[in-house]
Each structure stands twice: as C-alpha cells, then as structure tokens.
Design a protein around this nucleic acid. Structure first.
Lengths: 104, 104
DNA sequence: GTCATATATCGTATTATTTGAATATAACGA
DNA sequence: TCGTTATATTCAAATAATACGATATATGAC
C-alpha cells in the first residue's frame, strides 16, 4: 500500500540496466557505439586504425560490448564486422548527446 | 577531409559523457536517480531507510552523483534534500527504461 | 554552552576494471 | 600442407570502485 519512489525490493531490478550503462561508460566504448550508429557496420582493424590503440585493447572493449548485448558480429572472411544490436542503447546515446528528434 | 565515423582526435570528446554514464551505472545510484525523477526531492534518511543500506554507503553514492553534476542539494534544517540537476540525465534514464513519450 | 539528529568524510580491505604485450585461434590463399 | 592476415584470449601489473565502520561536521533545541 506504500508505493514508495525508492524500494529495496526493486533494487535488483536495476542490476541489468546498470550493467548496460557500465558497459557503455568508457570513452573508447562510447566512441565505438557512436561510430556504429553512423557507420552501421565496421570491422576491427578499421576502428583500431582510426582510434590508434593497440589491437588487444580494442578487442577487449569490443568483447565487453558484445557480452553486454550492445553489439553483435558478422564474420566476412578474415574480418569480423561489428553491428549495433540494441535499439535501447541507441536511444540512450542519442539522449546523452542531445539529438533532438521526436516525430511521434 | 575524411570525416570518419571513428577518430582518435574525438576520443577526448567522449570523456565527459562517459563519466556521466559511469556515475549512473550502479544499481543503487540508478535507483536513486529514478526515484528522484518520481519524487522530485528527497532527503538522505528517507532513501537510506527505503533502500536499507548503511548511511555512509548511501552518502557516498550521493556524493558521486553530486560530483558528476547529476544532482544538487538543498538544506532544510537538519536534512539535506537531493534534487535532479541534469535534464540530459533524465532523458537518458527514460530512454534506458523505455518511456514512450514524444509529443513533438 | 551541551545534547541529539542528519549528513559527510576518512580509513582501509576487498573486488573490479583497464592496459598492452604475448600468445592463441580462425580464415584464406598458394 | 605452410604462410599470412584479422581477431580473440591470456596474463600480469596498475589503477579505480565499492562497502562499511569509525569519526567528523552541521544544525537545531534547550
């Protein structure tokens, strides 16, 4: 009968969204996600070259995004392409960067 | 003349938004922010009681939100009320939880 | 002033994240 | 098969985040 704005019984309900945000909350990963919103599909070495960071570093960030369900992959020969997988994340990033768009 | 989707020169541009997300990406802090979106204004002991966590723990989470500019405070006697301070964060949280609202 | 209450900060042990070199795997071509 | 390229994983060291008891500060009542 209380319906409080805060409730410890709801706390675990925040675990999943908090994990999503945690996976996003690193400059490199945020940059990757933002880039994928524009480029739609991108392989690892292209990102690595643009961002000028070691291969293992970028690969680990990508695995973290993948583990969070934020991206998926598509292999094409030697290359692996990364693609955004979660619409919700796109909305979060748009909100974060203040895209104004709202055609109801 | 390249205008790439990824660029190491832009990387530092992601530091601030990534820090904002990092401040949000903890279940307790997300719960607090979500609660403040509903309750508008809340003092520490109310949150502490609802969430049933030690006083120093909640206070530290609140300081982290405050340092990130996500909340501000208003003292009223012995109590300190917390209030959301960043519209962008509200939009992010709405997007994260999938509020549908878009009256253009 | 003292006392009680509300909140903030400190100290620190524990756990998690980040980095990059080294190594492993996967796919292709010769 | 071997060699090459693209990507993933392992490992270790450094750094950062978390939790919470103990302590400090701030305000108000008396």
């Amino acid at each position: 009968m209380t319906l409080p704005a805060f409730d410890k019984n709801d706390l675990n309900q925040f675990d999943e969204p908090a994990n999503l945000l945690k996976a996003l909350s690193h400059p490199i990963r945020l940059c990757i996600v933002r880039g994928l919103m524009r480029k739609k599909k991108c392989n690892v070495s292209y990102m690595q070259e643009c961002l000028d960071i070691p291969q293992s570093t970028i690969s680990q960030h990508l695995q973290k995004l993948r583990a969070a369900g934020i991206v998926t992959t598509e292999r094409k020969g030697l290359e692996v392409n990364y693609i955004l997988a979660d619409q919700r994340i796109e909305e979060v990033v748009k909100a974060l960067f203040g895209e104004e768009e709202c055609q109801a």
